[in-house]
């Protein structure tokens, strides 16, 4: 793709990004408006006096028309104002900045486990299509997808954490091995501090929740890798590669998996968002601070702005992940490049 076409593509893609973000914000705004009852009361909290509620109503501009409210809401968002939590009494954005690294760490490791197990299993099943191996992997994938995350988390915590004592059962680090907070990522911070004990401690706290979170998602990865590999392996270019004398390994990776990058990366993009949803349950069970446990608490306390703010933040994260996925596909798949070139020059 030539530089000018690439620039045009990026321009179009960024415009799409802005539209999507605006769409997310609007959906979230409509969500707030759909809340039955007095929004000012909700924002001020159940214990607020009528006078306090009135102050909040004025501050949030709830006495104005819905269009003005919408514009004011957009304006507040542009200033990073997601509202104030009625539970922590802190700005929601500040709370999230504190907590999001824990969740990203969890989702990140879960994604690594997810891919390092799921992709090879999918490749294996596709290579042994219509054999017992294929069938077993397929059934295992379906089974993984049928396990309720929260229940699996509880069982794993009890059996592996409590009974075997293999890993810590809750939290992100053992009391006393904390390291100074710089990035907010416990693993990164402990490495920055040069403290390997703290690092392995953080990893030990992370590995079981991440594995539990990864299992249902592996189900999808196995299926998509298997499915797109099977399609790719039926193509003539696979026969041609074998006729050249290529090893089966080369055939599988260069002519099978290489062609499956586009659908698999699309799936990974979607899974980042879904995993943040799954993290809600895993963090609750393992008492890890983070996005999920904050959300559960917010739900329990009917902390409207905290919940809404988080829906928004997840939407933003997912939107940017989508952009990253598109760029990966653009780099990896000439068919995507061709399509985008045609669109960009149209």
């Amino acid at each position: 793709m030539s530089p000018s076409l690439l620039a045009r593509y990026l321009g179009r893609r960024l415009a799409l990004l802005v539209t999507t973000l605006w769409g997310v914000v609007t959906i979230v705004f409509l969500l707030i408006k759909a809340i039955p009852g007095d929004e000012a009361q909700a924002a001020a909290g159940v214990t607020a006096t009528p006078a306090q509620v009135e102050v909040v109503r004025q501050r949030l501009g709830l006495d104005e028309s819905i269009v003005q409210q919408y514009l004011a809401y957009l304006g507040r968002l542009l200033h990073g104002d997601l509202g104030t939590s009625i539970f922590t009494f802190q700005p929601v954005l500040g709370d999230l900045q504190q907590l999001i690294p824990y969740t990203i760490e969890l989702v990140g490791l879960a994604m690594v486990i997810n891919l390092t197990c799921g992709v090879p299993l999918g490749v294996w099943a596709a290579a042994r299509h219509r054999t017992r191996v294929d069938n077993s992997v397929r059934l295992a994938a379906i089974f993984c997808g049928a396990l309720p995350t929260f229940w699996l988390a509880m069982i794993a915590q009890t059996l592996i954490g409590r009974k075997l004592g293999a890993v810590p059962i809750s939290g992100v680090s053992t009391l006393g091995v904390e390291v100074p907070r710089r990035t907010g990522f416990v693993t990164v911070d402990s490495l920055l501090a040069g403290d390997l004990t703290a690092f392995s401690d953080a990893l030990a706290h992370l590995v079981l929740p991440a594995a539990v979170l990864a299992i249902p998602f592996m189900s999808f990865v196995i299926r998509v890798v298997r499915g797109s590999m099977i399609t790719a392996l039926e193509a003539d270019h696979v026969t041609a590669a074998r006729a050249k004398g290529a090893r089966e390994r080369t055939v599988l990776l260069q002519h099978g998996l290489r062609n499956a990058i586009a659908p698999v990366s699309t799936l990974i993009g979607l899974q980042v968002g879904w995993m943040m949803g799954g993290a809600v349950m895993v963090e609750t069970v393992f008492s890890r601070p983070g996005f999920g446990s904050y959300l559960t608490q917010a739900v329990a306390h009917k902390d409207t702005f905290a919940v809404i703010g988080m829906v928004l933040v997840v939407g933003v994260i997912v939107t940017f992940v989508g952009l990253a996925v598109d760029l990966v596909q653009l780099a990896a798949d000439p068919r995507v490049r061709l399509l985008e070139t045609r669109r960009a020059s149209a």
């Binding site: 193509a235 003539d236 270019h237 026969t239 004398g245 260069q254 290489r258 000439p334």
Partner: peptide, 24 residues
């Protein structure tokens, strides 16, 4: 057998659209 494929016997297939891998 693999050492002979391609080097001793070459195979050409019917459809050039599908015989070439579109992503390489």
């Amino acid at each position: 057998m693999r050492a002979r494929r391609g080097r001793r016997i070459g195979l050409m297939l019917q459809d050039p659209m599908t015989t070439l891998n579109p992503v390489r």
